[in-house]
Design a protein around this nucleic acid. Structure first.
Lengths: 199, 199
DNA sequence: TAACGATACGGAGCAGTGTTCCGCTTTGCA
DNA sequence: TGCAAAGCGGAACACTGCTCCGTATCGTTA
């Protein structure tokens, strides 16, 4: 988050830019967190991440006050890519419903490969609202656009809100990476299929 | 609930039946747990439950070694009722698919009204396998029967296993009780709808 | 009914986690 | 080079799950 704020700060001309060691630590922390998330899931103990980065506990909390901030920072690029894929798919797919299906697949792939992310995405514990917000702020409009297009073309019922769809898809992905007998992609595609039929 | 174990013991003739105070405590504990679950969700701290029951920590762990055991004991009757409703619905509904839909609704109502149960039902942490097992052992066959009936009647595709359906439905219920903007029942019905069409 | 062994109880204590706080160090500027 | 300000580290606290064992209670037997 803060790298960006810093940019904003400079743009505003105020800019007392961050100290070099701080910037370095933030970078290190991001790498360490990414590694820890892969190794132990997004719920990896804060101490582990700090240890990986070779910094103290205070440092991690200073840069990323909540776990959500850290998660958002680590996955920001991938979220961005997913968001950008929306319009692209809409333009290149045969029908809006097909585009929606493919976009959702993208989202599912993202979630399923991030150990525990889906679970935390739905968490209602305080401190994760930030995560909800960041992810949803970016993705919800994209999803809404796909949904609207599909509704307009008459392919699907139009009474489901983007929020509910995203939430449902996210939920279906929970635990998918650790249960060979459960194929989240399949359930999601069933859900998307169920969207058909304005009836 | 445990009266059952005791019955088994007696049936085996071995039966050195449980001490009266132990039986009493178990009952008290069950009530306390139910109350705590309502108040703070199924993840209520063990200490709280013990305090509510007016017993020590040791007592709770002796009677219910894992949280899953406690949850199972508390909700056993409702699970049983849900299981028994399956065949009944199949007999009284217009079509197997309708029966499946209504049965799933029952299950969803159960999950959604138990704060946090759905979340814990999918947990892969050790100690919850017992919970998985207990719930699934009882409900999976019922769900499978409904699914088979609907498949046989040609109403739905037949390639989805009962396990995946139950898991998907359970996941869709996660967090539903604490988010007014999310209607799990709707998503689930969409999923069931998506089951139609053998294609 | 008194005594005794089995059963069960209570809660202190350990371990693992998140989070805060503050004295010390490093940085960048004058 | 000196000195605030910015940043750092990690001890310490709070809260949780879970274990362990000395003590109390129960049920039985003499």
């Amino acid at each position: 988050m803060n790298d960006i704020d810093e940019g904003a700060g400079q743009a505003a001309g105020r800019s007392r830019s961050k100290r070099a060691d701080a910037r370095r630590n933030e970078e290190t922390l991001l790498d360490a967190a990414a590694a820890a998330f892969v190794a132990s899931g997004v719920e990896a103990p804060v101490r582990d991440i700090a240890a990986r980065a070779g910094v103290g506990m205070g440092t991690i909390y200073r840069h990323f006050p909540t776990r959500a901030d850290l998660i958002v920072a680590v996955y920001r690029h991938q979220i961005e890519a997913c968001a950008e894929a929306g319009p692209a798919l809409l333009a290149t797919s045969a029908t809006p419903h097909a585009a929606l299906g493919r976009w959702v697949d993208l989202f599912v792939d993202f979630l399923v490969t991030k150990h525990g992310l889906a679970a935390v995405l739905q968490s209602d514990s305080p401190g994760f609202e930030a995560l909800h917000a960041s992810f949803l702020d970016r993705l919800l409009p994209v999803c809404g656009q796909l949904l609207d297009a599909a509704a307009e073309s008459g392919e699907i019922r139009s009474d489901l809100k983007a929020y509910e769809l995203m939430r449902g898809v996210g939920n279906l992905c929970i635990g998918a990476e650790s249960d060979a007998k459960y194929d989240a992609r399949r359930l999601v595609s069933l859900l998307i299929e169920g969207l058909r039929h304005p009836g």
